[in-house]
Nucleic acid binder design. Structure first.
Length: 417
DNA sequence: TCTGGGGTCCTAGGACCC
DNA sequence: TCTGGGGTCCTAGGACCC
């Protein structure tokens, strides 16, 4: 008998209602109850709460309307990070081919591990067992020949389940499912497809490449068409480094007063530049984003010759970009609701470099200013290394009144630089 | 209840070079 | 002189992911 090469075996592991499950693990009295992590906004909720229609991203008031018994709990963000890392360590016990997608989700390629640990259903079951008994959390696992199928399988497996898609049953599995389950199809694309009467992945597979192209554009149309026809060649890529670093802050609606804008940008630049310096990186392109009261948003960017990672230089560039945009006649006197700074075109910077101020008052002293900035950044970084982030930084009194999520929550979402 | 924060990728137009 | 085509980089906006 000839053995047919079944192709790669990919697993997608996804912790169930992660933050809420951690709270129920740490506080047994919360088990079996509808709970939500967060306050103003639901960051995560338990399956007991989901049954009432509560979902993450929803405002706290709305959630309480849907589920009067809903109990809000504060987030133990340090624990989320620790437990998420522990789960990833379990995955690494089966293969180094782990691609972490977020704090609670990862693809793993076990093609080379099946001879050690057994077929995918055995590996999936062992992962679930270990995460359940060693760590105490529910996790769903999907297994299939491709990333696309594995990811969808884990969604279908939820909550707390395992779904293995056998190679000869892929189309039967895939085609009846709604297009919204597919990677890359969000609300906008889903609406476009619905207008054409396309609701299931099987229906999507019937649409000609030309029509998809005209409807969704070249890249998305091609990608989505291929995935619907079960042509997915993406490999599991062990995590690389981020291509950009950013930070944003939403603050309700405010008049763009110079002092306020300066404070917010200073705070954001401090976060971004601090992270860059910590990883000995710097970036040539600075992008700011301004969201207005009506949710319309614009971006402005600047690409310089030299990479930047000094807090003050970044603040200056961001301020210039923001005022350049806000001084346009159409944007004058409009209230703003969010500011963001992002740095891209990143390069390694083996040693910290001096950055000259943009427009030195006195060109001859520019070097002194640069040296002073370097010294300030360096000492702030040093204090933080020893005493933690909050030990020193921008006076963010004004800011903290408006930030609705704690600093630790921001850190959870940071990608490896 | 008008929507948190960190990212990626794509599109389209323009500048510039060969 | 006019004309074309291709590649790369930058900017701005938008959809999408978790």
């Amino acid at each position: 008998m000839i053995e047919v090469d079944p192709g790669p075996t990919i697993l997608h592991a996804d912790l169930d209602a992660f933050y809420a499950s951690v709270e129920q693990l740490l506080h047994p009295e919360l088990r079996g109850k509808p709970i939500a992590v967060g306050g103003g906004v639901v960051l995560a909720c338990s399956y007991e709460a989901k049954r009432y229609g509560v979902s993450s991203g929803m405002s706290g008031n709305k959630a309480k309307q849907l589920c009067p018994n809903l109990q809000f709990v504060g987030g133990h963000f340090k624990e989320y990070q620790r437990l998420g890392d522990e789960v990833m360590a379990v995955l690494h016990d089966f293969t180094p081919m782990v691609q972490r997608i977020s704090i609670d989700e990862a693809f793993i390629d076990v093609t080379g591990s099946v001879h050690l640990f057994g077929p995918p259903e055995v590996i999936g079951a062992r992962i679930r067992e270990r995460v359940r008994t060693d760590i105490g959390l529910p996790i769903s696992v999907g297994a299939a020949r491709t990333k696309h199928l594995a990811k969808i399988a884990s969604q279908v497996a939820k909550p707390d389940g395992l779904v293995v898609v056998q190679p000869h049953l892929e189309t039967e599995f895939l085609h009846p499912l709604p297009v919204g389950l597919m990677w890359g199809i969000g609300p906008v694309t889903q609406a476009k497809l619905a207008e054409r009467g396309v609701h299931t992945i099987g229906q999507l597979a019937e649409v000609s490449p030309e029509v998809l192209h005209s409807l969704l554009g070249k890249a998305l149309g091609g990608k989505v068409g291929a995935l619907a026809n079960n042509d997915d060649r993406r490999k599991v890529r062990p995590n690389g480094r981020a291509g950009s670093v950013g930070a944003q802050s939403a603050f309700g609606r405010r008049d763009p007063e110079p002092e306020f804008v300066r404070q917010v940008l200073g705070h954001l630049a401090d976060r971004v530049a601090g992270r860059l310096r910590a990883k000995l990186r710097a970036g040539r392109t600075v992008t700011v984003r301004i969201r207005f009261a009506g949710m319309k948003a614009i971006t402005r960017s600047h690409t310089g010759r030299l990479p930047v990672n000094s807090t003050l230089t970044l603040t200056e560039i961001a301020e210039r970009l923001v005022w350049g945009a806000l001084s346009q006649p159409s944007e004058e006197r409009v209230q703003i609701s969010l500011l963001a700074i992002s740095v891209s075109n990143l390069v390694d910077q083996a040693s910290l470099q001096l950055e000259l101020p943009l427009e030195p008052d006195n060109p001859e002293s520019a070097g002194d200013v640069a040296a002073a900035r370097f010294a300030i950044d360096h000492s702030v970084d040093e204090v933080r290394r020893r005493f933690g982030r909050s030990a020193v930084g921008y006076a963010s009194v004004t800011l903290s009144e408006h930030t609705s999520v704690p600093e630790e929550f921001r850190e959870l979402a940071e990608h490896e630089l």
